[in-house]
């Protein structure tokens, strides 16, 4: 007993014991995992007074075309926002690595600013831009391109653009990391062998950054789905997505079992998408390292 600790302790001076993680581990078990288990239990009650167990709430959601439409619209919204973020974010990350140092510092602050600014403030900005008296409508009216203000606020397009801005940093940061890791000689080699800029991009740069692309897409997608504030303020009352649906049932209607079932279905859907992304990530990592 007395001799073993010295031989065991010697190599561990560079490491810390795993037990340091247990206080937070316990905190997560009590305040994160236990609530999620409770959420599942509540979702199994058939009535709002919570006396009988059954799968009624899940049947109610999964057999109701309205609820399914809300789920579908939410998952699809995430796809649209992620696609727009990738389309605009990839070029920004690409340009970032090809500008001088001072410009990089400015660019990174521009990317980080939305990440740290309040979501309500950012969403509010889009209300000012897209509103009837907003900057776009004023400009178009003055140019004589339209006669009356366009309806931009409370449309799906408005929600997508606003969400893209809100979530853009989550896409751009992993892309910058991935692009930094590429050996610049590879692009030169590709060019020396006669490939044009487009061909080099599709055949060399993009495949090598796939792990970053997938990491960025995962974060953007997950954040876009649950962006409650932006969805409600820019989307308005006509468009209903899962977070607001959940909130209405829980808060306004006090229907906890149904709200719990909605939450659980939402969690499972997000978890399924994350699992797919992670699997793609593993495959792409093998591809990028090959």
């Amino acid at each position: 007993m007395a001799a073993t600790p010295t031989t065991q302790n010697l190599p561990t001076v560079t490491a810390y014991e795993l037990k340091l993680a247990w206080p937070l581990g316990a905190f997560f078990i009590v305040f994160f995992l236990a609530p999620l288990v409770l959420l599942f239990i509540v979702s199994l009650y058939t009535d709002t007074t919570m006396t009988h167990f059954g799968l009624t709430q899940y049947a109610k959601f999964l057999l109701d075309p309205f609820s399914l439409k809300v789920l579908g619209a939410t998952l699809w919204l995430g796809v649209e926002v992620t696609a727009l973020c990738l389309l605009l974010g990839f070029p920004l990350a690409y340009v970032y690595l090809r500008v001088p140092g001072w410009a990089q510092s400015v660019l990174i602050l521009i990317v980080l600013l939305p990440l740290l600014t309040s979501v309500v403030v950012r969403t509010f900005a889009w209300i000012v831009i897209l509103g009837r008296q907003g900057i776009i409508n004023t400009a178009l009216l003055e140019l004589g391109l339209i006669d009356s203000p366009l309806r931009l606020l409370y449309t799906e397009g408005g929600v997508i653009v606003a969400l893209a801005q809100v979530q853009m940093p989550l896409m751009v940061l992993p892309l910058i990391t991935a692009l930094t890791r590429i050996d610049p000689n590879l692009a030169d080699a590709s060019a020396a062998l006669g490939a044009g800029a487009w061909r080099t991009f599709w055949k060399v740069t993009l495949p090598l950054t796939l792990p970053g692309v997938i990491a960025g897409c995962l974060l953007t997608y997950a954040a876009a789905l649950s962006a409650f504030i932006t969805q409600t303020l820019v989307g308005g009352g006509q468009m209903l997505f899962m977070p607001m649906y959940l909130y209405q049932q829980a808060s306004t209607l006090n229907n906890w079992p149904f709200a719990a079932a909605i939450s659980f279905i939402f969690l499972v859907a997000v978890f399924a998408v994350i699992t797919v992304f992670n699997m793609l990530g593993k495959i792409s990592q093998g591809y990028a390292n090959a």
Binding site: L88, G89, L92, I110, R122, I129, M168, A197, F201
Partner: peptide, 25 residues
Amino acid sequence: VSFHLVMGVLALACIVILIAPTLVV
């Protein structure tokens, strides 16, 4: 030229979308 033009224009659009809301507010 076409490659750098497309990348540049998209990156510029991205920068505008990132900054404009803050400035407007």
